[in-house]
């Protein structure tokens, strides 16, 4: 298995509500890493987020963390700067769903790790979300598979296993998943049943 390349040069970061020494240390470290940091006092508008790769925000900021405020983050990996470990603060941080964290005050180490882990965690999450989406869709159309299987069983007087094997062969011929083919079969049974009859021989 190939190892992922670890390089952060060229990353564009939105840095939100970080101030004073933390902001200065981040800026300095970003320069060394070839990372572009854009600093904002508050969550910027959508347009400013368009070409960014990642967001880093201060988890203790009273600007961001007012209980009446629901933040709409751009769909980017989030890194949270944390200082306070009180559970109420951690509950708020969990709600923001960050991919990595960096302890305050920001030091000259740790930035590289946070950027790398945030990207890796976000990639993993994205991969898992895509997989879940695919599986959910298959689950949604699964009931059509049972209907299609039943149709083949009745039409050709087949047992359950043989009907499924036939359905799978037909799907493979069409280069589709069994679930998607089942949808097609139920929508236009005549043509596909003829094909099935040919296959059975």
């Amino acid at each position: 298995m190939s190892r992922p390349r670890i390089r952060v040069r060229g990353l564009r970061l939105l840095v939100i509500a970080c101030d004073g020494r933390d902001a200065r240390h981040l800026e300095q470290q970003f320069r060394r890493l070839g990372v572009e940091g854009r600093f904002y006092d508050d969550l910027p508008d959508e347009q400013s987020c368009e070409d960014a790769d990642m967001v880093l925000f201060d988890g203790d900021s009273p600007v961001l963390s007012h209980p009446d405020r629901e933040l709409t983050w751009p769909a980017l990996p989030l890194i949270v700067l944390t200082g306070v470990e009180a559970p109420s603060r951690l509950q708020w941080i969990i709600r923001q769903a960050p991919s990595a964290y960096l302890r305050k005050p920001v030091r000259f180490d740790g930035v590289m790790t946070a950027l790398t882990l945030a990207r890796a965690a976000a990639d993993q999450r994205q991969g898992l979300e895509a997989r879940i989406e695919r599986l959910e869709e298959r689950l949604r159309i699964r009931r059509f598979l049972f209907s299609a299987q039943l149709l083949l069983m009745k039409t050709f007087d087949l047992g359950e296993d043989d009907a499924y094997a036939l359905l799978r062969s037909l799907a493979m011929n069409q280069q589709k998943t069994v679930e998607h083919f089942s949808l097609d079969l139920l929508a236009r049974p005549e043509g596909y049943l003829r094909l099935a009859k040919d296959l059975i021989g």
Binding site: D60, P62, S65, P67, A86, P87, S88, R89, W92
Partner: peptide, 8 residues
């Protein structure tokens, strides 16, 4: 007040 003391 909106800070960690009151939140906690």
């Amino acid at each position: 007040s909106n800070y960690v003391w009151s939140w906690e």
